[in-house]
Nucleic acid binder design. Sequence first.
RNA 1: GGGCGGUUAGCUCAGCUGGUUAGAGCGCCUGCCUUACAAGCAGGAGGUCGCAGGUUCGAGUCCUGCACUGCCCACCA
Length: 938
Amino acid sequence: MPHELPKAYEPGAIEARWAEYWIKEKLFSVATPPADAGDAGGGARATSASAQPVFSLLLPPPNVTGNLHMGHMFEQTQMDIIVRWHRMRGFLTLWLPGTDHAGIATQLMVERQLASEGKKRRDLGREKFIERVWEWKKKYGGNITDQMKRLGASVDWDREYFTMDENLSRAVREVFVRLYEEGLIYRGKYIVNWCPRCETAISDLEVKHEDVPGKLWEIRYPVIGTPADKPEFITVATTRPETMLGDTAIAVNIRDERYTHLHGKKVLLPLMEREIPIITDELAQPEFGTGAVKVTPAHDPNDFQAGLRNNLPQIEVMDENARMNQNAGKYAGLDRYEARKQVLADLEAGNFLVGTKDHTLPLGKCDRCATVVEPRLSTQWFIKIAPMAKRAADAVRSGEITIAPENNQQIYLNWMDNIHDWCISRQLWWGHRVPAWHCACGEIVVAREAPAACGKCGGAVEQDADVLDTWFSSGLLPFTTLGWPEKTRDLEVFYPTALMITGFDILFFWLARMIMFGCHFMRGHEQDPAIKASSGWSERKDDAVPFRRVYIHALVRDADRQKMSKTKGNVVDPLDIIARFGTDATRFTLAAMAAPGTDIAFNESRTDGYRAFANKIWNAARFMFMNVDRIADRSPWTPIKADSEILHVGVGGVKTVALEDRWILSRFNRVAADVNDALATYRFHEAANRIYDFFWGEFCDWYLELIKPRLMNEGGSARAEASVACSNLVNLFESSLRLLHPIMPFITEEIWHAMQENKTSIKSIALTAYPQADEKQFDLAAETEMAILQDLIVSVRNLRAELKVETKAKVPIEIFAHEPAIRSLIEQNRGAVERLANVESIAFAGGSLTSKAGARSTARFDVHVIYERKIDVAAECERLKKELERIEKGMTNGQKQLSNEGFLAKAPAAIVENLRKQHQELVVLQEKTLSKMKELGC
RNA sequence: GGGCGGUUAGCUCAGCUGGUUAGAGCGCCUGCCUUACAAGCAGGAGGUCGCAGGUUCGAGUCCUGCACUGCCCACCA
């Protein structure tokens, strides 16, 4: 038989094999359904609606520079669970993968590589450099997708894209041109965030602020025209004294009476000996500092605005590397911090520096390279964001897009409401080049393709040197990957995507931009109505949105809750964890810890525990196969199911001949209900824990133990009983595997295939049906009865431990059942009690057994273990005392509530009834405990 | 400066819309190589749910304040 599995589960070989198989068989590739398909996808999977429901999801494209880290794995695990779950529920499921060219990040990598050869990018020139980046991309860009493949992510690899693919690049140009034509893209000279190391503008989002201790220097500027013997000064404060070299005014507030007499006067800019005016402007706030402020229009965004208001000259004193330029006089050539030192020294020498205060200031640093950002005057391309932001905010406010967990919604809206124009040009070489062409005559042509010549003067044109922000192109992906700007069938079917799962860290960078672009460019788009309806979106009105739902997942941190980072050296490498514990165990860990909204502190010991879970499943499978083989050997009968049976929803074919059958079937259905429920609201941890508890704590610990005698039956009619038990076992096991598959795809695939013995044409468990609860299979009576038996068995085990009965020794017990029904329940399941509690014989007593040593009482029965060993009276008294305390505490609480009229009047009847019942039980138990204590002489 | 979260067993975390005696994994203690699994089985110890008030018949759960802690946003010199 093919069912001889190794004793211990070894994930490595199995996982690699299935990962390859899934790709080779193209199991997750999705063809576009034809437009007229009333019954797309075909018979067995079609639902009551006429069209097959569709579930589409875009993978947040990892950077080509990336290697897989725990955050990716966490994100992908959650997506894969949701995706597999949908696929198994009959959705036509498209999970669309790709990678991002990651402008700055990638350019940085290649520049580093060049640096190791002693070269700079400018040595190569633009074309050669870009060739070099492409080479690099070819070599390393596939790393992360290769790793994804190994994780078993069930994406459609046939549709894999790269953001600089020709069709996507064409779409980027199309978008740029349209926005320009609509007046939503403009070009202008403004203060932008500038990274002196990357030598490019960056957007507000790419600046990370960090509070650092700094200084506030107070500098006095002599007012011109005041008496030489009693000169007057005006004092300003600054955190960046080197910028004073570019000052073109001093501003005071018009309401500030301290300075009224100086309105219209000039000061002499120290060190530069330049006369600059004192102006009145709201820039200066009387409450802050001295109320007077230096104005440097070329180096500060506020000053820039003030400069425009007052027609001030803009004097740039730094170059693109933040070194002082020729406008900085004798400081030219110095680095900005060198210059700062020199300026301060000179100011002090000239007696202009009048104060130095400690001052904590938020320092902006480049997100990529951590260089301190310098506000810089430069000509850039911008998106006029307000109109798009408004629609993007409305899409969320109106519920056309829902964001979970909910608190992220407000964060999103706050950001949208306070948004600034977006600087989209970058002075980089790697990326989508701005589709604008410049002529020497000053004309700029924005076009989809390079014009032959300047339309105005006929001169030669040259393409704009800048490239676009990476997020400009990735913001378009939900529709460009589906064929936009063409009107494709893919867009009709898969757009809007159903869901976006991503991290909080790119909420603004990416998510917000996708919504803005989607709402703008897909306005008027309509999803195929049949598909929209069958997929459950009939109530949504707006099909322009890039996705219907957003789920923001938490962050993975290290075991000490620290953010993982290379510099801290606390990065947990998922591949290393996988090598040690297996992919399934790692996935299960991430799922089990993924409570929405709570960051994960990744802890290996949990993974180790889930590796044990995989092993448990493995061994349960061995047990099953052992029985299948043994039973099948004696007759041609086989419990393995045929295709048609595998596709049913839930468990089929279980014959409920015994209590445990009814019980486990009922429990299975509850788990199925809970798991489906949990997944629908992204409570991955709940789904994982429910399955874990069910499979281990109920299926293995109780069900398998309970059916062993039936399985082992050898002769006569008992043989048929064994077959039924075995068949039940197989059916339940197979359904459990399906239930678990989205979380642990590998081990479930392996065992499932072994169960099929090549008798199925279905290529993967991933293509079977996901178990749904069948209400007819809920059996409350069985659950209650089973709970009583478990209670009895555990009580006896307890007593045995207390009495220190040798493990192997069987003991006789007596039971007093409070009701005849309890007695008959126990009688009917006598064998189970005897086996699982190691009992020799069961006698039924006619009255209370509480007076006996070695007895336990519950509200339904007393049980007495008959054993000559004297119990430790002191220890037993101690236990009883604790027990009594617990009981009486419960009674006091109950009494208090039951005598409270407010409670009786206002609490739901069921709660009151429960409490009454519980209180009555406590009364019985108290009495029993007390009499027992008396007996023992406690 | 604004906003958001966290604080529950030795450790890492659950506990959804307030309702029986607050749970799990790991670790710890005791006993078992029981014919699927020692990566296992059986049993056990361990918590005044950060602090102080409040709402309620009833609070780990809701409200207020405080403490500690983490994160995000922010052009105030």
